[in-house]
Design a protein around this nucleic acid. Structure first.
Lengths: 66, 66
DNA sequence: TCATTAAGTAAAGTTTACTTTGCATTTGTT
DNA sequence: AACAAATGCAAAGTAAACTTTACTTAATGA
């Protein structure tokens, strides 16, 4: 699964730490998500979508394999 | 977080086991999700949305607390 | 009534999300 | 060059997702 968190952060001018604080996770969680180290929970996805005022599908996209 | 998986299953005439098979998880996972026993991963959410031809936000909704 | 299918539940085990800490590297600014 | 802010990364620990097995209960129909 790929994601556009980094782009969305840029659009909203947020640092990893700033975003982390806004949605209530650690900075490492944001960093790891951006680097595709793990798959976030649906709650996290919904919070990001809400914050970025977009759809979950706009931030996260399945890739062929999954 | 609440979800409308049960309704979507009804619309698409799928049993828990049938849905589980389609998206590649165990039947227990579907049952537990429906009963809000745990928060699914974003990959699961995207697969469900894809299968049900709807948006993730249509299936899963944040509640006040989260 | 009996059999079958679907759904609820629960325990034990494995995998993985997420935290915390801490340090190294990059990038921008003066 | 020097400093600070932002990012990358990694190890160890905790919490939670997900699996497997298995038993129970509800609903449906022959």
């Amino acid at each position: 699964m790929k994601n556009s968190i980094k782009v969305q952060r840029a659009i909203h001018d947020l640092t990893q730490a700033g975003l982390a604080e806004k949605i209530g996770v650690s900075r490492q969680t944001i960093n790891a998500m951006e680097k595709n180290k793990y798959v976030p929970s649906t709650v996290l996805a919904l919070k990001l979508a809400e914050l970025f005022k977009t759809a979950v599908e706009d931030i996260f996209q399945l890739e062929g394999n999954e």
